[in-house]
Write a protein that binds this DNA or RNA. Structure first.
Lengths: 97, 97
DNA sequence: CGGTATCCACGACGATACTG
DNA sequence: CAGTATCGTCGTGGATACCG
């Protein structure tokens, strides 16, 4: 369980993974989808996800550089967890309100 | 989704909730089940969970004081999420190994 | 475009000692 | 029994500026 928790620990890791569920994205595309997220933090989260083997990163040669981030097979395993996070959040809001 | 994330944020909140899933527990019983967790941190986590309306706390009069912590209706809503955390953790370990 | 560098704030966590 | 007090450490996150 600690493994799964590590994958979504922190406020942003989860959101980054969710964004990548739709398909590969560039650094800028991720930033655009996650306003109020500085470049530094995005870099950190991506590095962490890559280190955990959940995300892979491909850099195209040439200039300007193009980088594409995508989920690995392991990263895709997180989908049911995200779905459950969403459902539980909804349920909690309904219970309170 | 942020609501659900807040409920299990931190390394210990999740474990405390899981322990309470089996039924109400006293402060000491929680500590016994969570070795290497200092009294201070347990107090902090419990306060946070109570503030979020996920856990309730009942103190018996007399001496020595007896305190019982239990999940609220909202807290019980977290069960499917914990199950999914466990399953995802297993899946990730299987994928790596 | 895709990042680094620097500095700072805050919360989670941990250890030890003490209290109503 | 069920905490509180104090202090210190570390990771996450935020702001701003700069670089290949």
């Amino acid at each position: 369980m600690e493994v799964a928790l590590a994958a979504i620990s922190g406020r942003w890791a989860t959101l980054v993974v969710r964004d990548l569920m739709h398909g590969p994205k560039s650094f800028s595309a991720l930033r655009a989808g996650l306003p109020s997220l500085s470049a530094k933090v995005l870099t950190e989260r991506l590095e962490s996800l890559v280190a955990q083997g959940l995300v892979s990163c491909h850099r195209s040669p040439g200039f300007p550089v193009r980088t594409t981030y995508s989920l690995t097979a392991a990263g895709l395993l997180l989908r049911p967890l995200l779905v459950q996070l969403y459902r539980t959040g909804e349920a909690l809001l309904a219970e309170r309100g």
